[in-house]
Design a protein around this nucleic acid. Sequence first.
DNA 1: CCAGAATACGGAGACTGTCTCCGTTTTAGC
DNA 2: GCTAAAACGGAGACAGTCTCCGTATTCTGG
Lengths: 188, 188
Amino acid sequence: MPAGRPMRADARRNYDKIVATARVVFAERGTDCSLDEIARRAGVGPGTLYRHFPTREALVDALMKDWAGRVVRDAEAAVTADLPARATLMTWFESFVEHITLHRGAAAKLCAAMDDPSSPIFGKCQIMGEANRRVLDHLEARGELRPGVDAQNVMRIIGGIASVTDSSRVDLDVRPMLEVVVDGLVTD
Amino acid sequence: MPAGRPMRADARRNYDKIVATARVVFAERGTDCSLDEIARRAGVGPGTLYRHFPTREALVDALMKDWAGRVVRDAEAAVTADLPARATLMTWFESFVEHITLHRGAAAKLCAAMDDPSSPIFGKCQIMGEANRRVLDHLEARGELRPGVDAQNVMRIIGGIASVTDSSRVDLDVRPMLEVVVDGLVTD
DNA sequence: CCAGAATACGGAGACTGTCTCCGTTTTAGC
DNA sequence: GCTAAAACGGAGACAGTCTCCGTATTCTGG
């Protein structure tokens, strides 16, 4: 991002207050909570919130500041652990699901943004996509992946599992589902 | 459903008008359109709509009157065609996705209702679940399915793929994704 | 066929959430 | 300090959900 000139002190203060409050409220009520409530609890007017974050996704994006680093780190860890393909994929996919379901409702938003370059969180999807490709390429190079598998589609499948799990009333275990996908990806 | 007494003539008339209009508006704008708009276009007051259909899902459910029959028929067809496991699953899963994405936004609602007996469309999920189990049981009996696969989870995975596809801005082909899942389900 | 009871209608409006506009306040730079 | 630029914040427009209750329609039995 172009630096522009530094933010004015009050702007910076409010920006930070909003982000901090959003983190709390998103955790409490999920990503679809009222934005005006966040503004109220942050002690700013709604106008201030919307000036800093024109859309809900822009706010979600701001919360994911250090998220990208964690994603890349986990992908790298899965690769360097140098385990059998099945274990590598399971580890990575579990991380994937965990990252994408940080807040309730986030998974569906991320999935929807995967093919929407105009979305503020499209960049995050790209990062996720690159991390995912990193893992798959590694396995492919070792011939442990079935040919013709598109990394983007793998991301969609795992994203779908995460979304469904996230929107379910009950607490589901994603691993059996991930195992099916893993079995569908590895060569035997 | 217990018959109760027959509906009053005007009630029946309005009920039918609302359902017919909802079919049109859902097709135009998806399952998340304004319910008041449906009422307006059906020429009834909002009160009337909400009396007949207390929730949006109750209305969705009413639209799926003949849906259940089609689902069961397709599952049966996939079984009786007696094709190899891969082809059977692909055929069935493609039908599954088609049925669950009848209207934009429907897939996510169906998935969320899968584990929510209080949802008006829970019954539809049950039907879908039984149809799906029917197909999987058939393959399992022939030893063409990997052991330990839970039909409910398969439904969630396919539902997830459908949801993600449905919410995507671009027009995706689900088949490559379904193929991964199929590969993960069949014995080689 | 008509009167009365039962049922259903419908729309005004309460409520909640989104988002904007613009008069007022705060900050930064000189 | 003074001024211009930047940011604030909250009133309020707008849209969607959903309810309440006075009014209208339908059904029933005499």
